[in-house]
């Protein structure tokens, strides 16, 4: 549903951003919806005098479509790992000037050199998180350890999976013991066959709505994000969260500056401001996702560390794999497989 709105919003964004106040320096920031403490924008403007035009998107693909359409020149964007990789590949980002990012040193070592952006030349991690299986302990009584549970006929009509090709095929790949980033056509075709086999068991496939469906108890088991699980469990204490043993998707959303940014200086100031400990803490409070900033991590309330979900011992990266940008041929194969999957009755 959010997506439907954003189709319209996409058009509006372009119009609004262009007509927004002309006086004084300003930057246009494009971030995920519900993923930021927006009061920080006002605080940033107060301190620096740079106005912030703040816009949101719901999927990496909407961000990509908006950038490709060329309607707005964003100054700061916050895509996820594989999209950062794709934007680098298509030469749509500018290298960051680390000299202007005084707080960069606070980014934890393990997030500085990930495969989608070797050496962290183009991106500064904003938040990280992971996908897991969320299930209702009153309905799912078998032990949940593996992705196989999403293929268990006992839970027919109770299962929800992600409604996009990369996540859905990715989970099938993991279940079969392959990498999320495989380019092997055979492995991907096997994953497709597994998804088609699973289809009769599904209650639905969707994105944001999974949050409500699992929290309300309309579905018993589904895939969703660790950060949101913290919120979901407050409303429904019967829910539990598991990283399947085959490994899961760990994602990193990162600040980037597009090549065509109008105010790269302002953009650097903004990114640096958001890497301060106070900003990081405010964002963790609002979003529930995990910070890659060392000083923020050290100042967190005990509650965040207790359950081991947001900040597992030894870091989240050991529980899974980060998406890489796939070669064009593989992306096109994904499209074809996803179409076949959707057309299959």
């Amino acid at each position: 549903m959010k997506k439907a709105l954003s189709v319209a919003a996409l058009a509006l964004t372009a119009a609004l951003a262009l007509t927004a106040c002309a006086g004084g320096p300003r930057i246009i920031v494009y971030n995920w919806g519900e993923y930021f403490d927006e009061e920080l924008n006002a605080a940033f403007t107060k301190e620096t005098g740079v106005k912030v035009v703040y816009r949101t998107f719901d999927t990496n693909e909407i961000l990509y479509a908006s950038m490709k359409s060329g309607g707005v020149a964003y100054d700061v964007i916050i895509p996820s790992d594989y999209m950062v990789g794709l934007l680098i590949e298509e030469d749509m980002l500018q290298p960051l000037d680390k000299g202007k990012l005084s707080n960069y040193g606070d980014v934890m070592e393990m997030y500085r050199d990930l495969e989608y952006d070797p050496g962290g030349r183009y991106s500064v991690p904003y938040m990280t998180g992971s996908v897991g299986i969320i299930y209702n302990t009153t309905k799912v009584t078998k032990p949940v350890e593996s992705w196989d549970i999403l293929w268990d006929p006992d839970y027919e009509g109770q299962i929800i999976i992600f409604d996009n090709s990369r996540d859905a095929l990715g989970i099938a790949l993991k279940k079969l013991g392959y990498s999320f980033n495989t380019t092997s056509e055979n492995e991907l075709r096997e994953a497709l066959a597994a998804l088609i086999e699973q289809k009769p068991l599904l209650q639905a496939k969707m994105m944001d709505q999974i949050f409500d469906k699992l929290t309300s108890g309309a579905a018993a088991i589904g895939t969703y994000y660790a950060g949101d699980f913290i919120e979901m469990r407050k409303d429904n204490p019967d829910l539990a969260f598991v990283w399947p043993k085959e490994g899961t998707n760990v994602f990193v959303d990162a600040f980037c500056i597009p090549k065509n940014a109008k105010n790269p200086d302002g953009a650097h100031m903004y990114i640096d401001y958001m890497c301060r400990a106070e900003s990081g803490l405010a964002n963790v409070d609002v979003t529930g996702y995990s910070t890659p900033l060392q000083s923020v991590y050290e100042q967190l309330d005990e509650d965040w560390l207790e359950d081991g979900i947001s900040y597992p011992e030894g870091g989240i990266l050991q529980y899974g794999e980060v998406f890489k940008s796939l070669p064009k041929a593989t992306r096109e194969l994904y499209d074809r497989l996803w179409t076949d999957y959707n057309a299959a009755s």
């Binding site: 997506k3 954003s6 189709v7 999927t59 693909e61 909407i62 990509y64 479509a65 490709k68 409604d163 996009n164 090709s165 990369r166 289809k199 599904l202 209650q203 639905a204 496939k205 969707m206 992306r331 994904y334 499209d335 996803w338 179409t339 959707n342 057309a343």
Partner: peptide, 21 residues
Amino acid sequence: GGKVLLLGDLIEMQFLGNAYN
């Protein structure tokens, strides 16, 4: 629930989905 794919969904997938075709 994403199980009844219609033309509108198919078109949307091409413009705002992974496909971007």
